[in-house]
Design a protein around this nucleic acid. Structure first.
Lengths: 219, 219
DNA sequence: ACTATATTCAATTGATCGCTTGAATACTAG
DNA sequence: CTAGTATTCAAGCGATCAATTGAATATAGT
């Protein structure tokens, strides 16, 4: 294979990315995810001018994200396919989960960066064996059953507020979930602090814990 | 919340889109989907300067797509989470399905090879457990060591022709590499077929396999 | 043919992006 | 402390992008 076709593929994917780099275009895609619409309708809904909307739509079409159908004077745009819906969904998950959500939680509940300092796995192991901390697994019960940190208590994040009294108030609670960027433990720490308990996150989650060869229980 | 929360969400999604609007950043993400890497390693792999690579990585971090871990002088970057793998995968799917340019590239470089139906992950899992297929990992040895499909044999693509006799001829060989746009498995299938073995590609690669929670081995 | 409607095209301006260069910072090893 | 390594920062330049404006094209109704 002589030339590097990967480069060209990345460039093409980057064009799709570029199509997603404008908030107006994202909004257009969200609107088109509901049903096909005319240019002027989209312009009215987004508040942009018709010409501007038209240009954005053409960029989206060039990137292969939308397609157009002409009827009388009007042009109806629609999403090019289900893959685009999946892409929007994936984008939403990443965007909301990692940028807005963490940012919101951090600003809302956790003043100061130091307050967020996670506990390392080795620290936790030592302190848990001394009985100094409560280890809290906030994942769903079935994931807990498949394997959890030795001695950890399982209270899924959704039930945490109701079952607060199961946690001893005098010990610090170290919460963990699926991994370093799983949000459940952030929310758990936020909630516990709000309720007056001392709480921190485990630096990593279950996969990393297991991978490090640290003690795991099942059931 | 502020005046128009929807606008803010679109804006934050557009930031993620902007992060995906550069071919270098896409390539960085694909590389990081394999495993965490240092800045200078990524610079060498992409061919960009270290400073430029660093700046791109910071944009990715700002968008919440990657995170960094410092060790000694080095900074190791990795994907922020599984959602990012899903996003990359969705991006690739859109590209594959709808972008004419990618279609052209695929036709240009992969004629005759891409016509072969790929094997899905679940199909492979079932057939591998029955001993019906040989699973072949054609990535470099170090990537294989960092994690590979359970039971897979590792023969890097460069050595495949010399080490053909290591593969049983009566079983079908299912080859995989880094992901849907990694070309090594295409080449592997082409070579194996030329040599008279039955062979197909795995539909996706290692990152998707891992994300699906399918069995992975290390070492 | 004439007019109204819907969309696209073309040209412009200000802003942002990407890349390079050279320096600054952070950490390690001796 | 000094030298070496890894990364980031800051400034600058050319290219690209977003939005506006005004005109051009296409279609339908009269």
């Amino acid at each position: 294979m002589s030339i590097n076709p990967k480069r060209e593929i990345f460039a093409s994917l980057a064009k799709v990315g570029t199509a997603l780099s404008s908030s107006i275009r994202i909004e257009l895609l969200e609107l088109l995810a509901q049903r096909e619409r005319r240019v002027d309708q989209l312009a009215a809904l987004t508040g942009a001018t018709v010409a501007n909307t038209s240009q954005h739509l053409q960029k989206l079409r060039q990137a292969g994200l939308v397609s157009a159908r002409k009827e009388a004077q009007s042009v109806f745009y629609r999403l090019a396919g289900d893959e685009v819906v999946a892409l929007l969904s994936a984008l939403g998950r990443v965007g909301e989960a990692y940028v807005a959500e963490i940012d919101r939680i951090v600003r809302l509940y956790l003043a100061g960066v130091d307050a967020l300092e996670p506990v390392s796995a080795t620290q936790l192991l030592v302190r848990a064996r001394k009985g100094l901390v409560t280890v809290l697994d906030v994942r769903p019960a079935e994931e807990y059953a498949a394997g959890h940190v030795q001695g950890a208590v399982n209270i899924p994040i959704a039930e945490l507020e109701k079952r607060l009294k199961e946690l001893p108030r005098r010990k610090e609670v170290v919460a963990y979930c699926r991994g370093p960027y799983c949000l459940m433990s952030y929310n758990a720490v936020a909630l516990l602090r709000k309720k007056g308990l001392r709480s921190r996150r485990l630096q990593d989650g279950m996969p990393e814990w297991r991978m490090a060869g640290l003690p795991v229980e099942q059931g």
